[in-house]
Design a protein around this nucleic acid. Structure first.
Lengths: 229, 229
DNA sequence: CATAGGGGATTGTTCTACAATCCACATCAT
DNA sequence: ATGATGTGGATTGTAGAACAATCCCCTATG
């Protein structure tokens, strides 16, 4: 009896705890905008809705608070995070640091399968005017850029950063067309990478990110709720 | 009545939950080596020792697991993380990416108060042959480097990376002298920064980090427990 | 109109209970 | 002796009740 091909089954055996499954559910609900920033997640409501005890639910809340998707206010409960303009600026600071750093350090011609897939997905979505899919493809492209570093921690960092940014998109006036202008620039960056010119790609990427930040901050400042505290 | 000078009191008012205080205690215990990598933290033992309930303790465990200081194995409990050689390599990959990225991007002459303090602390510790303090000063220097980016998320990332690296130091044969050779190189990097030459400082830093990684990986590979699974 | 106080609702924390799982040891067959 | 099997105790996973602490809204009072 061989032990090959059991790696996939490993995932099934390696069950996750209820708290982690609950966290996964809430995470996707938040990222898809079902729970909007500022929304309160009451223990009682969510707990009975999902059929888990308060203990388990609170463990899930801890996880998501640590991922910055929820904020935990003592004796008040947990809320879907509302990012400030400063948060957006910081997120793009990290993006420039990490994404450009990874891309610049690329030597030779890297494997670009994921990037090619993301770009073509974006082009298909564009033709269909499926802005939701276009956004997803765009985020996948940037996740793919960081994946070039072959660093699990960098991947996770980037995944968290993009999850936070999704919170911003959900409170924008027209989040759907936001990604449209960047598809062509993604393709350009991919092209430079395929030519093995990491530094040039990094320069393009930095301009890209600064433009995106500017646009996002401008749009975000408008509908920012007045700071009460 | 003025509202000045209340920022400090804010910390007192802004009480933290028990779970977070417990997490803070465990975090410092781990980072100081009281709990060594691989050690099991039983809910019952720790719970009664700290006088908190299992629920609260488990919330604290979740926090620290998310920080990668503990690993959570279903139905087996939580253990102080034991890093693999791959982890060490990845940590240094992130360090090169982030630290060098921050330093290279420095324009003009940055405020280097923290860095100067870290270097002089290191020199004092060196004269006293206080290797513990030397290690602390060294980590503070690198935290200070990342702080130049003025990015809370980068700071937190770096803080987590260094916390993980401390786990490595605690299982090394002679962790105490490890930092010794790097004090002079820290001073050199600081000097380049004070001259406003970020790129040169980044190049120095990259060589520094590659040397440190090589030394650490070599030392770590020796006493690595045989991989059972 | 501003302020103080009361009461309901929610969270913070502990405790108890039991199911699920793991682990070490004993038992048994080869 | 060696390896498989099974059994029991210990620990974790999860649920639920209970109560204190806190917040928040509403109302009474000056």
């Amino acid at each position: 009896m061989t032990t090959d091909g059991l790696a996939a089954d490993r995932m099934l055996l390696n069950r996750t705890s209820t708290a982690e499954r609950v966290a996964a559910i809430l995470r996707s609900r938040i990222s898809e905008g079902f729970f909007r920033p500022g929304a309160r997640l009451a223990e009682d409501t969510i707990g009975t809705a999902l059929g888990v005890s308060r203990n388990t639910l609170r463990e899930a809340f801890r996880l998501l608070s640590h991922e910055r998707l929820l904020t935990h206010e003592l004796n008040r409960g947990v809320f879907v995070r509302t990012l400030t303009v400063e948060d957006v600026v910081d997120l793009y600071r990290v993006r420039v640091l990490v994404e450009c750093g990874v891309v610049r350090a690329v030597d030779g011609v890297p494997g670009t399968d994921r990037l090619v897939a993301a770009v073509t997905d974006g082009e298909v979505a564009m033709r269909r005017q499926d802005w939701q899919a276009l956004g997803t493809a765009n985020l996948k492209f940037h996740e793919g850029l960081v994946a070039l570093a072959d660093s699990p921690r960098a991947d996770e960092l980037m995944s968290g950063v993009l999850a936070e940014l999704r919170l911003v998109f959900h409170v924008m006036a027209d989040p759907r067309r936001f990604h449209k202008p960047y598809l062509a620039r993604n393709r350009g960056i991919l092209h430079l990478l395929q030519q093995g010119d990491g530094p040039a790609a990094a320069r393009e990427l930095e301009l890209y990110l600064r433009d995106a930040e500017e646009q996002l901050v401008a749009a975000y400042r408008h509908l920012q709720p007045p700071p009460f505290e």
